[in-house]
Structure formats: C-alpha cells, structure tokens
Design a protein around this nucleic acid. Structure first.
Lengths: 133, 133
DNA sequence: ATTGTTCCTGTAGCTACTACAGGAAGTATA
DNA sequence: TATACTTCCTGTAGTAGCTACAGGAACAAT
C-alpha cells in the first residue's frame, strides 16, 4: 500500500515541504521512488512521521526528536527517555516562569494607561524610566 | 561625550554584533564616524539602545520595537501604545496556556516512568499510542 | 618598533520551517 | 490524441534575531 507525499501530508498533518525537509535532515527514512521519480511511502513512514509530529507538538526540539528517534531505532531504556523528558519539562517551566513575569510587568504598565488619544503614555514612560542616567 | 561601540555595549548590555545589526536594520540611528572609521556614540544613542533592549526584555518583537520607536520618534498617543501592549500580552498569555498544557501532558507521561535501565518506557509508548491505525 | 586590544566589513550559520521558480509527471476530459 | 489541470520534483532564498567567524585596519601602551 503505497502513498505519495501529498497523501502522507494529509494523513499526518505535516506539510509537504516539511516532509522533504525532514528527509534532508535524516529524520525521515529515504523512501523508494516511482519510475517518474516520486517518493513512495508506506505504513512505516507514516508511523515515523506521526511520531515526529507528536514529539514536535509536545514541544521537543528537532535535536531532541533526533535523539528520541535514535533511542527508538536502536533500543532505549526508560531512564534515558525519562531524563530527556524531565529536561524538556524543566525548560518549559522556566519559560512559563519568564512569561508570567513578563505578563505581570506588562499588566502593571498597561493598567496605568488612560487609553486616550493623548500624547502621553505610562507604558512608554515606564520603559524610559531609569534610562536617563 | 563620545563613546565607542565596545563601551556602548558594556553600558547597555547589548553585544557589539547586535548593535551593528540594529543599525543595519534601521533601529539605531547611524552614528558619525571618527577619522579612523569608528562609530561614535553619544547619550542619545545610549538611551535609544537601552529603550530597545528594555522592549526586547519585555518580549516585544523587533517589529513591535520598530513600531514603538516610530511612535516615540513621531509622536504617539496612549491608546496606540496601549493597544500594542495589550496585543503583546494576549500573545504571551496564549503561550503560557500552551506551555502549561504541554507541561501537564509531559508530567502525566513522565509520572508513569519506572526510570529504570529497562527497554520499555511509557513516554515512548504514549507517543506511539494511536499511531498504529 | 612591537605587541595587544578594539574596531571595521562582509559572509555564513543557527532553528525549523515556508515560499517560491521553473519544470516534469500523472490524470481527467474533449 | 490533444489539452488542461493537479501533483510532484529540485533548488534556492526568505523568515527572526541574532551570533560567529575571517581577514584586515586603527589605536593604545610599552
């Protein structure tokens, strides 16, 4: 049961250019070609691409995905995968912390706004604050 | 009171290549040059660069910074700045929501890990789940 | 005169794609 | 069979926001 790249794209939700990009980056296995030179994918490719997409959706970097694929391909242990997952989770939590701080700061700045059509804004003032020395 | 790029970099915490990049991107005003061809910055440049850095630290994109600078340069109203700030805050909140969901999912997956040196991991299982049809 | 630091320009690299251009292959219809 | 239309191909360049060189010139200190 062979499918072409357009169908693979539809089934996985990964777009065509990205699939070719993954091939170039050695994330996807190189598929056989038809006489006309078209890529012929099968079930294994579909599963692999879905795996990649799922990892990406979980926020893993391509570098991480590469490691996960290597683990999957070459035999892995739970502790290896767990370590990667925990590291990733730590990074996510750090981002959340940073963004929350940003949100708070922006909120405080914005709260002071009059919202009027006047040439004076506490946001700009606040950004400029302590800049003049 | 003229300073060179290295000193400007030290004072603002923006590194040298980035300063030159901002100049190329028309965020920084083009400074006069010394006889030897070195950029000569003054107070105004320092303040402008600090403003840019502060905006970046607040998570504004360079595109947003460009708009903020234009507003600052050309006269702005509170409502314009407020609108930009609110939009930015909405984007940040969306990111926080997404990351929280990721964190939760990863946490659930990881919780099931044995953490042992065994070739079996619920994280991988979970990523693969529902992929086989 | 020499050494060491700072500066210069210009180009390439990073992440993870996306968007073409220009052409070939395959399919459906007249 | 001729035509039109869609899908595919390769290869290159663009996106954001820098960072990291290479190769050379300018300046400061000894």
């Amino acid at each position: 049961m062979v499918i072409l790249i357009g169908e693979l794209s539809k089934r996985t939700g990964v777009n065509i250019e990205t699939i070719r990009y993954y091939e170039k980056e050695d994330l996807m296995l190189i598929p056989p070609r038809s006489d006309g030179g078209r890529r012929q994918y099968d079930k294994a490719h579909t599963i692999r691409l879905s795996f990649i997409k799922r990892c990406r959706d979980l926020g893993f970097s391509l570098k991480d995905v590469r490691i996960l694929l290597k683990l999957v391909d070459g035999g892995y242990t739970c502790s290896e995968v767990q370590a990667l997952t925990l590291r990733h989770q730590r990074e996510i939590r750090k981002k959340i912390t940073d963004l929350n701080r940003l949100d708070k700061t922006l909120g405080e700045m914005e709260k002071l706004c009059s919202g009027k059509q006047v040439p004076d804004c506490p946001v700009i003032d606040s950004i400029f604050a302590n800049l003049n020395q």
